[in-house]
């Protein structure tokens, strides 16, 4: 069974300017419609397979992000949406930003852009789905080996 037929998506705003957030939301609405890939935007980390994070990480969101990531069931993939999530972007020099989200959790797909365009984001999510499948089959092989 392929998990990639219907991966659910969780969006978290680590400290973005909102530009990427609304583009993440816009990609679920009729014009771009990621739902045609079986993707549903969920609010619950325990239902989610893909974590889309926007914005760089600050002091206060660090723990929240870690917690959300740890609550998601395995296998899971992380998409960093927007340049801030990739490496801090224009806010990299701010005193409260510690850089991209890869300083806190492992990232699988980086989607740069300010703000990220929905087309690019969908491309990134489709890449993430392929990685998700890979992780899933590795997990199955490990299970068979260990019995």
């Amino acid at each position: 069974m392929q998990i990639s037929k219907s991966p659910w998506l969780l969006h978290y705003d680590a400290s973005s300017c909102n530009g990427c957030d609304i583009e993440v939301l816009a990609s679920t609405t009729p014009r771009f419609d990621v739902e045609r890939f079986g993707i549903i935007n969920t609010g619950n980390p325990k239902h989610a397979d893909i974590l889309v994070v926007t914005g760089g990480v600050n002091n206060q969101t660090r723990m929240v992000l870690k917690q959300l990531y740890s609550q998601m069931p395995d296998p899971k993939v992380v998409v960093a949406a927007g340049i801030c999530a990739c490496d801090g972007g224009i806010f990299k020099e701010c005193y409260n930003i510690s850089g991209g989200i890869d300083t806190v959790i492992p990232v699988d797909v980086y989607v740069p852009g300010c703000a990220v365009r929905p087309e690019a984001l969908i491309d990134g999510i489709v890449k993430a789905i392929a990685i998700l499948d890979e992780k899933r089959s590795k997990q199955l092989i490990m299970k068979q080996k260990t019995g």
Partner: peptide
């Protein structure tokens, strides 16, 4: 949770570059 401290960027970016920062205070009312 989203405090970045961009008002402090005036020390690092000149008044022309700050236009970009000001536009990125928020993506909706940019």
């Amino acid at each position: 949770f989203i405090h970045r401290g961009l008002e402090k960027l005036v020390d690092k970016k000149d008044f022309q570059e700050m236009v970009y920062v000001a536009e990125r205070i928020c993506g909706i009312c940019s």
